[in-house]
């Protein structure tokens, strides 16, 4: 019969319309921005720089190795190395980025900088409402605007941040152990020398 298919289809829409009053499964829209769906943990938008402690400038983990700058596909990272050094998280003196800019208007949120960074210094933010009316300066973030605390990182990516912290703690412990071993070796080296000295001094007698 002509129109049978149409009626069948209309029945389907009627079912969905009526269903949307009772079932969440059929009414899937939310009234953004008043209502928001929680973002999944893995969700990513643009990168930020992690710092430890309270002072963002002193605590930046980045050591300006420029790997991310080289690997970034659209080349939207710009780094200038510092002339002096500051201690990093294991206490080793390292250079730091005197300038670290990311052009958010060019960045394509690919996460490759995060993957290649060997120092866990750059991570993905999930803040996506970054619209601005200034298309040049407003979208060029310098290192101050990019810096976010480790606590913030824990807040947006809890599992991943915990893993990173564990890894860093392990590294630090290893570095300390190594430092201790080096110190012990130095001491051990110094000790026979010390012991040999009087003997040397004793020989001419």
């Amino acid at each position: 019969m002509l129109g049978e298919g149409l009626l069948k289809g209309l029945g389907e829409t009627a079912r969905n319309f009526a269903g949307s009053f009772v079932s969440k499964e059929r009414l899937t829209t939310v009234q953004y921005p008043e209502e928001r769906e929680p973002l999944p943990e893995a969700s990513r938008a643009f990168p930020f720089l992690v710092y430890d402690g309270a002072d963002w400038e002193a605590g930046l983990r980045c050591v300006a190795c420029q790997i991310c700058e080289k690997e970034c596909p659209p080349k939207c990272i710009y780094i200038e190395k510092s002339k002096d050094k500051k201690p990093d998280y294991v206490g080793k003196p390292q250079i730091y980025p005197a300038k670290f800019d990311i052009d958010i208007s060019v960045c394509m949120s690919c996460q490759i900088c995060v993957e290649v960074c060997p120092f866990e210094a750059i991570k993905m933010d999930n803040q996506f409402e970054l619209a601005t009316d200034d298309r040049f300066g407003g979208l060029l973030y310098d290192r101050k605007e990019l810096a976010r605390s480790n606590e913030y990182y824990h807040k947006i990516h809890p599992t991943e941040a915990a893993e990173v912290d564990a890894r860093l703690a392990e590294e630090k412990a290893k570095a300390e152990e190594k430092a201790k071993a080096v110190a012990a070796a130095a001491a051990a080296k110094a000790a026979p020398a010390m012991a040999a000295k009087p003997a040397e001094g004793a020989q001419p007698q």
Partner: peptide, 29 residues
């Protein structure tokens, strides 16, 4: 729009899975 919206409703579920796995809904990389 009716069939399109029904399709997008299902697509949304799949994209939610992609987002929780890869971090992005469409640009998965």
């Amino acid at each position: 729009g009716t069939p399109l919206m029904y399709a997008f409703r299902e697509r949304e579920k799949i994209l939610d899975l992609f987002e929780s796995l890869t971090g992005s809904r469409m640009m998965c990389n």
